[in-house]
């Protein structure tokens, strides 16, 4: 074990413990950044250069900033911090014991007597040229996994639309934009008005005057 591995794993584990122990959310975010720095160093030691950079950019750059924004949005006037007195009865020993069982099970799986890590008894082989770099990563991603890439894009799009539906501003100008003459009304509006359609959606609801804007259901 080299110094780099020991130092990076110590930093990562210390950061993770800091997240669990932090009383104020901002301290949790800072500990999380420490954890990501250690993890990124571990990625670098595994010759995963692009993953190390992506870890920093995506997590430290985007996700943690999102957390900071939400922390500043949530004021929690009465009780801003969380203390041991907030815990349920027996939560501390039960949580620690459960986590210990999880860790023990995982470690037994990879290093126990009945571990079935095929071919793991050996040493690291030298990496081929360009392994872990952005060029090799892009080639694998776009040639071997194009469908998965599209799926990731779809997941992000759905998340974007979902967030807009959840917390987006309700604009109540739909009604004024619709013409008030009866000739423009679609046939479904009458059905919505007399209740024969159970699940009215979108503009039909607004046009019938039943509701303005979109409410989360």
């Amino acid at each position: 074990m080299t110094i780099l591995f020991v130092a990076a794993s110590t930093v990562a584990i210390a950061g993770a413990l800091g997240v669990v122990a932090a009383r104020t959310p901002v301290h949790g975010v800072l500990a999380m950044l420490t954890n990501f720095a250690g993890l990124s160093a571990l990625f670098l030691s595994l010759q995963a250069e692009f993953m190390a950079v992506a870890q920093i950019i995506v997590y430290a750059g985007a996700v943690m900033v999102l957390f900071l924004f939400v922390i500043s949005l949530l004021s929690a006037r009465n009780r801003p911090t969380e203390g041991p007195e907030d815990r349920l009865w027996g939560q501390l020993p039960a949580g620690v014991a459960t986590a210990a069982v999880v860790v023990a099970g995982l470690v037994m799986t990879v290093a126990g007597p009945s571990a079935t890590m095929g071919g793991a008894a050996g040493s690291w082989r030298p990496v081929p040229e360009g392994f872990g770099g952005v060029e090799a990563f892009g080639r694998v991603l776009l040639t071997a996994f194009p469908f998965e890439l599209e799926l990731a894009g779809l997941v992000l799009l759905v998340a974007l639309v979902g967030v807009m539906v959840l917390v987006g501003r309700r604009v109540e100008t739909v009604e004024t934009r619709l013409p008030s003459s009866t000739g423009e009304m679609p046939a479904t509006v009458d059905a919505v008005a007399d209740g024969s359609v159970r699940e009215p959606v979108g503009v039909a609801v607004t046009a019938s005057g039943e509701s303005t804007g979109v409410r989360p259901r």
Binding site: A12, R87, V96, A100, V102, V103, V107, V110
Partner: peptide, 16 residues
């Protein structure tokens, strides 16, 4: 093992 430990610490945080 480091990955397992980090996973366990995360699980502990969710539980605690």
């Amino acid at each position: 093992a480091v990955a397992a430990l980090l996973f366990g610490i995360g699980a502990m945080g969710v539980l605690l």
